[in-house]
Every structure is written in C-alpha cells, then in structure tokens.
C-alpha cells in the first residue's frame, strides 16, 4: 500500500521546493494564521532531487495573488507553485524574483524615511536575485534578510 505523509488536496495550492527551513516563514508572509478556514499542511525537511532537502506547504481552497508570489520568490527563489483543481495540477510554475518590489517589504534601515509615517510605499530595486539582495530606492540601504522585513 502506498503511504502518504500528507494526502493530496482537491483544490488549492502546493508550494514545493521551498528552501529548507523556510516553510513557516512562507506561511507567515502569505498571512496563514490560526484563524485560517481551510486545511494547511506543512512538510519540513523533505528529501529533494533538486537540492538535498526542501520544505513543502499545501493550502486547501486558496490560490495566491501576484504580490504573495513575489514575496515567496524573495525568500525562496527556487520554489514552485502547483495550482490544484479537482485533484489535478492545473498550473505549475517556478516563482520569479521581480526586478522591482513595491509595497511588500519595509526597509531594514530604521533611519529610512519610509519607516516614518510618510505616505509612501517602500520600494526596492532587486540588485541580485540568488540570493535576493534589495536596494531601497529612497535610502540606498541593501537588505538581504528579506524574510524579516516582508510585511
């Protein structure tokens, strides 16, 4: 008998090839908290063919919007997204690190004007994609600890 650690989902999203140890951060940045209304499965430290280990997140009855995909790309640029409809993979793609990022991350520089109640969305230029390093358009500070600064 085939053994499943986690059963397939009928509708929803499987985020595969998440960098090992980043699954909980992925949940946080896409806003999955205790009040979620559908089943969420998290697999950590799963053997992977691509890299030796990976994490996987499965969220039932939910598809991700472009901003959420950008956030995942920034903390785990090799992640793949599988959109499941009626038990079948309807779409499958690798996330793409964007060239510019606006409104999804705060600047890591506490002295940056964007952290001071001004009516602007923090904006960054992606200087390197793997690993992602982002330069603040306003103060020029480089941020490499992306997960800590995603809002």
């Amino acid at each position: 008998m085939k053994e499943f650690k986690v059963t397939p989902i009928r509708n929803g999203t499987v985020i595969d090839h998440i960098e090992m140890g980043m699954a909980l951060k992925v949940l946080r940045i896409i806003g999955v908290r205790g009040d979620v209304s559908s089943t969420v499965s998290v697999l950590m430290h799963v053997p992977s063919k691509k890299n030796s280990w990976k994490d996987i997140v499965k969220i039932e009855d939910r598809e991700l919007d472009p901003k959420e995909l950008d956030k995942i790309a920034l903390i785990s640029p090799d992640a793949t997204i599988n959109i499941i409809r009626d038990y079948n993979v309807a779409e499958k793609f690798v996330v793409e690190v964007p060239e510019r990022v606006k409104g999804i991350m705060s600047c890591s520089n506490p002295g940056c004007i964007t952290n001071k109640n001004e009516p602007v969305e923090p904006e960054f230029v992606v200087e390197t994609k793997k690993p992602p390093a982002l330069r603040c358009v306003y103060c020029d500070r480089m941020t490499t600890d992306i997960a800590e600064n995603i809002v």
Binding site: C107, I113, D140, R141
Partner: peptide, 29 residues
C-alpha cells in the same frame, strides 16, 4: 505634518527646494 505635505506646500511657494533632514532617503521622497 509629514515631510510629504510640507514639501507639497513649499513646492507651491518656491522654484527650487533645498532640504536637510535627519532621515535617510528624505530627499528622494
């Protein structure tokens, strides 16, 4: 008052703005 609002006002009163500010990125903003 936010810097953004002060700037909008002074923008209407002058032809060029010179700004010194304690926050990094203030001039870009």
């Amino acid at each position: 008052e936010t810097l953004a609002d002060t700037i909008r006002m002074v923008d209407a009163y002058s032809d060029v703005i010179v700004l010194r500010h304690p926050q990094e990125g203030a001039a870009r903003l």
